[in-house]
Design a protein around this nucleic acid. Structure first.
Lengths: 382, 382
DNA sequence: CTGTTAGCGCATTCAT
DNA sequence: ATGAATGCGCTAACAG
């Protein structure tokens, strides 16, 4: 400012505040911008080897990096896709993300990861933001969207594919776990293992279709087996943001269980087994968590109530297979998370290319991982 | 294409493939683009109420959303900052991210989250990508960068702030845990609790400054206490991608422990306590994990070796406080993750504004969370 | 108060 | 094989 004069930089390699542009490179290489552009786009067969060499030198010399914003503005597409995640705290989301990233990498997209952190308002904001950045598509692990999202996204808007959850009025591709199959698989496992009392524990599922599906599948599986009258069960709603009610309901069940066990103990010396059951060992209650966050909350609660030996009293099973499930020895249904993410991007890619027009579903199977929590001898106690 | 004529959309609300531009709005409102631009930038005091109303109507009518790419291109800044995360699988990263997001929200930035997934190559690619998108700054949870990153970033490049780890030759702001203090805190805790044999377990720390700092602090704390001769310890390197060697080393220590305990048992009836120790109870080995991923790996290994009762044999303590630590009852040093992320963005913001010129550090204190794993009675056994 | 003009950095006709 | 001109959607001087 105080010094006068030419815009030329001061001596001594002063910091160039402005990055080189395509014009700079053209000048440096002694050619026109067009050739630079061609070089950048790999049209080498239209460039003389010498020109190409000069361009390469100039680019290296100026440390030139093409401005993606400008490119995107010009060509009308920017290879950006939005990835809206409901909750990165959930290992499920991170695993799906890995698949998304891999697929993006493979297909030449750059994923813009947006984390709604379980806040519907954030979700809305990010969705809006993504459209202003003109992403070519979004893959959405929805949270509470509905009409609001329908405007920018969907049929008449930017291509979208849903992950895990469906959105009410939106006709869009969707990829996720085969919830009915997975839930049935797990429910049957519990019944086969001889648990007579089942509790399916799930978060409130206003808008989250996968939760509803799981509840329904659980109850259906139970009813189907109910013919044999072997097991009975119920669904408990647990709000992770306000768990007092849900845990109270659970505690009532646990109280009953404890009382029953105590009763068995009293009676065991006198009348042995009251009914005609084969075994006198008290049947444990089985808790079926609809996902990992619920399972964690339950485990914490049980741990607080029964101490470290809680697994000798209650069997816990969960959909989702977080790392700690292995440590705690909890039986789970593992989701094909990576594939879910990968497929989602593939779907989106096809849709962006305009190859597909009808909404498709991709339901992937879960895998039952049996661990000590549902074994006959319960968790090996120290 | 086949139909002739006007660009007007076909009847029946046909899908408008192209989003409205500022010119469309101007035409719709019967004014010039400048006024629209002014409206968008909140310069209401320069617009007659009527014009303003017409603009509002036109925008609503056309569902207009300004193209951020174009805006950024024009004004030279796009309010984008890059957040390069080494490993989203680590709860630490996600927690830091939450702070980053909150701060971005507050300061008007949009964070571009990039996940290197522990791959140095990914890190390099993303860094490059971020610069081509002309982010105004990056906050980096580095992984293996060095010179390569120095070119685009740093003093003469785009502003950067480091999180948790420092980068070799780079003069940049840095925010993270006060590693020496936190490590010393935990080491002293272990010694006070009476553990005589300590093992600090850490991943290979070629480029990761925080790991090196923790190792050094551990050994220093040990040496400082060594005057009393109460505790001795060693550092074990555990490579999570190839844990055979590290676990073998651990197993040798555990074998020795087991043998010693067995010896004590043999001898206990005859000679009672061999040395002059107050208590005959075998002192457990204490494992000090440098971070949560290491702690998890250790826990899994111990669980495999000793069964669910492993905590009666070995005490585990960790830096980082993942959710499962509460469940497993493991003592931890909790990092102020949210604050770390928030401060990082604040630092970056100041730097982007050009307010600061010298590299600063922000070292935040950790908090010791005592749990059963390091209590006198070990983990309550079922 | 409001509209016109001129680019931001780049890709694309269209001529050479 | 190469370059000049045009404009993507928007903001920022300048005029009125």
């Amino acid at each position: 400012m105080s010094e006068s004069g030419t815009p030329a930089p001061a001596p001594g390699h002063a910091t160039p505040p402005r990055r080189a542009t395509i014009s700079d490179v053209a000048r440096e290489a002694g050619t026109g911008k067009t050739s630079i552009s061609r070089y950048l786009n790999g049209e080498f067969d239209v460039l003389s080897p010498q020109l190409r060499a000069r361009i390469e030198a100039a680019i290296k010399q100026l440390d030139y990096q093409p401005n993606q914003m400008a490119r995107g503005l010009k060509r009308g597409r920017n290879r950006l896709i939005g990835m809206l995640v409901a909750d990165l705290t959930n290992p499920y989301s991170v695993e799906v993300l890995q698949g998304v990233e891999a697929a993006c990498h493979a297909l030449g997209y750059m994923p813009l990861i947006c984390h709604a952190a379980n806040e519907v308002e954030m979700e809305r904001r990010y969705l809006q933001l993504l459209t202003t950045y003109r992403v070519e598509g979004v893959i959405v692990n929805a949270l509470g969207v509905r009409e609001e999202m329908l405007r920018p996204v969907g049929a008449s808007g930017i291509p979208a594919v849903l992950v895990d959850r469906r959105v009410e009025g939106l006709e869009a591709d969707m990829v996720g776990l085969d919830n009915p199959a997975a839930t049935t698989l797990a429910t049957r496992h519990l019944i086969e293992r001889g648990y007579a009392e089942l509790r399916f524990v799930v978060q409130p599922f206003e808008r989250v279709s996968s939760r509803r599906q799981r509840v329904e599948a659980f109850e259906a599986a139970l009813a189907a087996n109910g013919a044999n009258g072997a097991a009975s069960g119920r669904t408990l709603i647990l709000d992770l943001d306000d768990d007092a009610g849900g845990l109270a309901a659970l505690d009532r069940d646990l109280d009953a269980l404890d009382a029953f066990d105590a009763g068995v103990s009293y009676a065991s010396d006198a009348r042995a087994t009251s009914a005609g059951d084969e075994q006198a060992a008290p049947r444990r209650l089985a808790l079926f968590a609809a996902n990992a966050p619920v399972a964690m909350r339950l485990a914490l609660h049980l741990n607080a109530r029964y101490g470290a030996a809680w697994q000798t009293r209650v069997a816990l099973l969960s959909i989702d297979d977080p790392e700690w499930a292995e440590l705690a020895g909890i039986t789970t249904v593992r989701q094909p998370t990576y594939d879910i993410g990968y497929r989602a991007v593939e779907f989106l890619h096809e849709r962006i290319a305009g190859l597909v027009t009808q909404a498709r579903d991709c339901l992937l199977p879960g895998e039952l991982i049996e661990r000590a929590s549902t074994s006959a001898s319960a968790r090996s106690s120290p």
